[in-house]
Amino acid sequence: MSQPTAPIIHIQSLAKSYFRETLEIPVLQGLDLDIPAGGFYALMGPSGSGKTTLLNLIAGIDRPTGGLLEVCGSNLNQLNDDELASWRNENIGFIFQNYNLIPVLNAFENIELPLLLTSLTRAQRKEKVEEVLSLVNLMDRRENYPRQLSGGQEQRVAIARAIVGNPKVLVADEPTGALDAKNADEILEMMQRLNEEFGKTILIVTHDPKAANCARHQVHLEKGILDKTVEVNR
């Protein structure tokens, strides 16, 4: 009998409120969720349900106002700003709806950005960047600037940047939201591959049922409360 593995994301009684002057606006309330390593979860729900807030909390971009949040073995509440920045660099890969590439850096330089924070040598960085460029089929576009790439290619560069540091968790906020159907399919296929072949834990926020069906679990949020978790039959 195999031992149950500890979840890579452990959320217990998580709460997040925003404050407008003295007015408290609760966004997430008493949320409990465990995500195992290698999971592929889609966060779904209507606008304002707290999906992006939850994603930001898990990715260490925002801080909860209550509850426990352990990701990749770290209690994020206990990390200061600098520690949280280093933690993000080591553990989280980001994929954004609008790609968020730096317009003045070419594809290679954009992908190299997270590696500049590590102790890798220039040659080691080059090797890793080329490795992920091959993985996303963009070796021939390495010198191109974002403005010289199509939307699909930009998102592939963004995925390459997200995985180049070999993070344990990939978070994606509407990763196909700005793409046409063909490019969206390619990106979703790539994410599935990253999950299945490379064992990456993936969390995506999406409104797109097609994107949500690529995940293995769908987490539905409703007014900041976990409504239900559904396993997807693919």
């Binding site: 700003d81 080591e90 968020n100 317009p103 997270p114 924070l117």
Partner: peptide
């Protein structure tokens, strides 16, 4: 601002 946010998200410190 978005570039700055991206850099911070990637792990760059203040």
């Amino acid at each position: 601002t978005k570039e700055i946010g991206t850099l911070r998200a990637l792990g760059y410190r203040r």
